[in-house]
Amino acid sequence: MIPATPPILPPTPGQLLARGVSRHLIGHDFMPLTEFVPAPGLRVDVIALGPRGEIWVVECKSCRADFVADRKWQGYLDWCDRFFWAVDADFPAELLPGETGLIRADAFDAEILRMGPERRLAPARRAALTRSLARTAARALHGLRDPRHAMG
């Protein structure tokens, strides 16, 4: 018996921002993954691997309340070379810490307004994180090609 297909829900505002950010990053030769778990208890909205192995994390905030409720973002700094916030044109950008990157995004594209400062990952962490990104991407691709045997 083939399991029932779950209903397709419309994307959330944060998912729409992540899509625009991902499209923009691909234009810079960064390969993004969304909703990636770098460590237990953390889930980044977008993580992207650059052409020289650099790793960027982007947190998408769709409204002021979403930003204020986020108490984990500083934990993401240990998992990337650069950290960015992605917000839409209506978001009050003055709320965001000035020592982080800033991306203005919508569902279709984005623009980097402020580059996040570089904090180079330790080589061992970079290697482990890169392997995890590769395995997660391969699992996602397999799930698209063979949903019945997708690995959890």
Results as ranks from 00 to 15, higher is better:
13 P>I: 04
147 P>G: 10
92 P>F: 10
61 K>M: 09
145 R>M: 13
114 R>E: 11
20 G>W: 08
83 F>G: 01
45 D>F: 00
1 M>V: 05
83 F>V: 05
21 V>D: 02
78 D>I: 00
18 A>L: 02
9 L>W: 11
76 Y>I: 04
127 A>L: 06
22 S>T: 04
1 M>F: 12
22 S>F: 00
87 V>K: 05
84 F>Q: 07
43 R>N: 04
65 A>K: 14
143 G>M: 04
146 D>V: 09
85 W>E: 07
80 C>G: 04
121 L>M: 05
87 V>W: 06
21 V>T: 04
65 A>H: 04
99 E>L: 08
53 G>V: 06
75 G>M: 00
90 D>A: 15
121 L>Q: 07
112 I>W: 02
62 S>M: 02
78 D>P: 02
72 K>A: 11
136 T>E: 15
10 P>H: 10
29 D>L: 15
26 I>M: 15
100 T>E: 01
51 P>L: 09
59 E>R: 06
67 F>Q: 07
131 R>T: 12
143 G>E: 03
28 H>A: 10
142 H>N: 07
140 A>Q: 15
108 F>E: 13
53 G>N: 14
86 A>P: 11
103 I>D: 12
66 D>C: 01
111 E>H: 06
110 A>R: 11
60 C>E: 01
26 I>F: 09
137 A>T: 13
144 L>T: 03
70 D>Q: 03
34 T>W: 02
113 L>N: 04
96 L>G: 10
38 P>G: 03
45 D>C: 02
100 T>L: 03
86 A>Y: 03
133 L>W: 13
141 L>F: 13
44 V>G: 12
107 A>E: 04
2 I>Y: 14
81 D>K: 07
109 D>Y: 09
130 T>N: 11
133 L>H: 08
125 R>E: 13
140 A>V: 06
32 P>Q: 05
81 D>F: 06
141 L>D: 10
96 L>T: 09
52 R>A: 14
152 G>D: 12
77 L>G: 01
12 T>W: 07
135 R>V: 14
8 I>M: 10
14 G>D: 00
48 A>C: 01
17 L>Q: 01
138 A>H: 11
90 D>L: 12
10 P>R: 12
60 C>M: 01
39 A>C: 05
33 L>D: 03
74 Q>G: 03
57 V>A: 15
124 A>E: 15
93 A>S: 14
20 G>K: 00
97 P>Q: 11
101 G>L: 00
24 H>D: 01
39 A>G: 05
96 L>A: 09
59 E>F: 04
147 P>N: 12
51 P>M: 13
89 A>D: 14
120 R>Y: 07
27 G>M: 08
52 R>Y: 11
146 D>H: 14
30 F>A: 11
27 G>I: 02
84 F>V: 12
145 R>E: 13
117 P>V: 06
110 A>T: 08
13 P>E: 06
126 R>L: 06
20 G>Q: 01
55 I>G: 03
14 G>T: 01
144 L>A: 13
119 R>W: 07
1 M>Q: 02
31 M>Q: 09
29 D>A: 15
5 T>R: 13
39 A>N: 06
100 T>Q: 14
